[in-house]
Amino acid sequence: MNLPNKITIARIALIPIFMVFMLVPLPLGEIETSAGMFPVSHLIGFVLFVIAASTDWLDGYYARKLELVTNFGKFLDPLADKLLVTAALLSLIEIEMLPAWMAIVILSREFAVTGIRLVAASSGEVIAASGLGKWKTVFQMTALSVLLFYNLPFELWGIPAGMALMWIAVLLTIVSGVDYFMKNKHIFKHSM
């Protein structure tokens, strides 16, 4: 297994650890900010999320630089992103910082795209992420990071940056999903 794929697997391994810090009531105390109090465990969860999200750039960088792009990596990298985003969305719903409908829109698109990838893979075709899909991921990860950090420092000035970024992420999710289906409609024709 090459270095980029190892980095992707490390990202997947961080997900359950992130969820423990976000969802299990750990007795680690709270941090007081001018915007309010939040659990230390959530701060640790935020740091783990940022580290995991950063590995998405890192594995892609090494795959391209070292010419180690593989079909396994093309399949595993977007799956790792989807798992990380799902974990963060569910955590934010649980701590009441994100409306469930936004998560449903994002997750519905992700499941649909994964379904198409699986159908394509069954006939030997691997579909890499598109440019729009990459922008969608950037906005999702950024929005989730800001929300997981309790919208700080923007909360201090009353700026709902996390939700504004999430709205952009939802719009990009819809647009990139439609684009993905349009570009890959041949897969449906060949699989029926």
Rank of each mutant, 00 (worst) to 15 (best):
A63C: 10
D81K: 00
I17N: 05
P99C: 02
S34V: 05
L28P: 09
P27F: 01
F46H: 12
W101F: 13
I31W: 14
T86F: 15
R64Q: 04
D56W: 06
G29L: 07
M97H: 07
T55Q: 04
L83S: 02
F49Q: 08
A100Q: 13
L48A: 11
F38C: 02
F18I: 00
L89A: 03
F111G: 08
W101K: 07
F49E: 10
D81C: 06
V85N: 01
L66A: 04
R109F: 05
S108Y: 00
I95Q: 04
A88T: 07
L26M: 12
K82Y: 10
I31G: 13
A80R: 03
I44Q: 05
L66M: 09
S41W: 12
G45F: 11
P99H: 15
I51L: 14
V20W: 07
A80F: 04
I104Q: 09
L107V: 13
F72C: 06
I95T: 14
L26T: 01
N71F: 01
I51N: 06
A112Y: 06
F49T: 06
T33A: 10
Y62S: 01
T114D: 10
L23Q: 10
P78A: 09
Y61H: 09
S54F: 14
L58P: 08
A112G: 02
Y61G: 02
L76T: 15
P25M: 10
A100H: 10
L43V: 10
E30I: 02
V50G: 00
P99I: 00
V47P: 00
W101Y: 14
N71W: 00
P25K: 15
A35M: 08
L43C: 04
L28Y: 09
E96V: 02
P25R: 14
P39S: 07
I93C: 09
K65N: 11
F46V: 09
I104M: 13
P99M: 14
I93K: 09
P16D: 06
K74G: 13
V47M: 14
A13S: 11
L92H: 04
L58M: 09
N71T: 01
A53E: 12
M22E: 15
M97R: 05
G60E: 15
S54P: 12
F46C: 08
I17E: 00
L43F: 14
M22L: 15
A88Q: 14
P27L: 01
R11V: 00
N71C: 04
N71A: 05
I106L: 03
P99N: 14
V20I: 15
G45A: 13
M37I: 05
H42V: 11
I31P: 11
P27Y: 02
P16H: 03
T86I: 11
E110H: 01
G36S: 10
L23P: 07
L23T: 13
E67I: 03
A13M: 12
G73Y: 07
F49D: 09
M97K: 02
M37W: 15
V85K: 00
T33R: 12
D77R: 00
M102F: 11
Y62W: 15
L66S: 03
V20P: 10
I31H: 14
E67H: 07
A80V: 10
L58I: 02
G36E: 06
T55N: 07
D56S: 06
Y62Q: 04
A13R: 12
I104K: 03
P99Q: 15
S41M: 09
